[in-house]
C-alpha cells in the first residue's frame, strides 16, 4: 500500500495549486476543494511575493492555515470554516475567520492575532506564548492549556461564549478570558470542570461566577477588583472592537478572577535521593 495516494482526490481534496488572483497588495485564493498542502503553499507564496492581504474564499476545513508563518503586517482573511491547527507556531500575521474554526487554533503560537467570528473547537492556544486569539462564540474542551508568558510576550485569549472542561489547565502565563455571552448553550454552565487545574502562572477572568468544585485546587477564586478590571479593559475593548460588540454590555456583569496560589505547585512533592 503506498503511503500517499497518487495525484487525484486525497481525503476529499485535490492536490493541485489553487487559483491566485493578485490585485495590488491583495492576493485572493479560491480554496474550493484544494488540499491543505497546496493551499498553504499558495498562501506562503503570496506572502513571499509581497502580498499583505491574503483572502481565502470557500475554505472548507483545510488544515494548517497560517501555520509556521512568520511575517509582519500581513492579514489573512478566511471565508468559510478553517480546519485544525490554524495559526499554529504563527509568528506575526493577523488571521480573521468569517465563519467557525476547528480544533487547535493558535497552538504554540508566538505572535500575531486570530479573530474568529464564530465558534471554535478544542485545544485552542495550547502552549501559546504570545499574540491574541479572539473567538466570538463557544469553544470546546482543553482551551488555553499551558499558555505561557515570556518577557514582552504575553498571550491573550478571549472567548465570547461558553467553554468545556480543562479551561486553562497547566496555565503558566498570559490572560485567558471567558464571557459566556454569544453562546448556543445558555442553559449550561459557563465553563466545565477542572478550570485552571495545575495552574502556576497567568490569570483567568470569567464574566460571571464559577463554583470552587469546578476549579483546580491550585487556583484562588476572587471577585475581580477595580484594578483588575482596569488592567483588563484595554483587552476587552480590543476584543469588542474586533467582534463588533458593546464594551459596556461586556462590563455590565462582575468578573471572577482565577489566579494560582503558587508559581511552584509541585515544589515540595519530591524527596531527592
Amino acid at each position: 500500500m503506498p503511503r500517499q495516494m497518487a495525484p487525484g482526490v486525497t481525503e476529499g481534496y485535490l492536490k493541485v495549486a489553487p487559483t491566485v488572483v493578485r490585485d495590488g497588495d491583495t492576493a485572493t485564493i479560491d480554496a474550493t476543494g484544494i488540499y491543505y498542502r497546496q493551499l498553504n503553499e499558495a498562501i506562503r507564496g503570496a506572502i513571499a511575493e509581497g502580498a499583505t492581504r491574503v483572502v481565502l474564499n470557500n475554505v472548507n476545513g483545510q488544515r494548517y492555515i497560517g501555520t509556521g508563518v512568520k511575517a509582519k503586517g500581513v492579514t489573512i482573511e478566511v471565508h468559510g470554516t478553517a480546519g485544525n491547527d490554524m495559526a499554529m507556531f504563527m509568528d506575526g500575521p493577523t488571521i480573521e475567520v468569517f465563519g467557525a474554526a476547528q480544533d487547535g487554533v493558535g497552538n504554540t503560537m508566538n505572535a500575531g492575532k486570530v479573530i474568529v467570528h464564530g465558534d471554535a473547537g478544542d485545544v485552542l492556544g495550547y502552549g501559546m506564548r504570545g499574540g491574541a486569539v479572539y473567538v466570538k462564540g463557544d469553544v470546546g474542551y482543553r482551551v488555553g492549556i499551558h499558555m505561557k508568558a515570556y518577557e514582552s510576550l504575553i498571550p491573550i485569549m478571549v472567548c465570547g461564549g461558553n467553554a468545556r472542561d480543562f479551561f486553562g489547565e497547566y496555565m503558566a502565563g498570559g490572560i485567558l478570558v471567558l464571557l459566556g455571552m454569544n453562546t448556543q448553550f445558555a442553559e449550561q454552565p459557563l465553563v466545565g470542570s477542572f478550570v485552571g487545574a495545575g495552574m502556576h502562572g497567568g490569570v483567568i477572568y470569567l464574566r460571571g461566577t464559577v463554583e470552587s468544585w469546578q476549579c483546580g485546587k491550585e487556583v484562588g477564586i476572587t471577585e475581580a477588583t477595580e484594578e483588575d478590571m482596569a488592567a483588563l479593559k484595554p483587552t476587552l475593548a480590543d476584543y469588542c472592537d474586533a467582534q463588533g460588540m458593546d464594551l459596556a454590555e461586556v462590563l455590565s456583569v462582575p468578573f471572577t478572577k482565577l489566579a494560582p496560589f503558587s508559581h511552584r505547585p509541585y515544589g515540595k512533592m519530591y524527596a531527592p535521593m
Binding site: F89, G104, V123, Y266
Partner: peptide, 28 residues
C-alpha cells in the same frame, strides 16, 4: 519558575492527532 512539561501532549489524544502534529511540523 518551574518548567513543567505535562505528561501527555494535550493536542495528541490519538494516532490521528499525532498525524496532525507531524504534518503541522512539516508544514511549518
Amino acid at each position: 519558575t518551574d518548567a513543567i512539561s505535562p505528561a501527555p501532549h494535550h493536542d495528541i489524544y490519538s494516532i490521528e492527532d499525532l498525524r496532525q502534529l507531524i504534518y503541522a511540523l512539516k508544514e511549518a
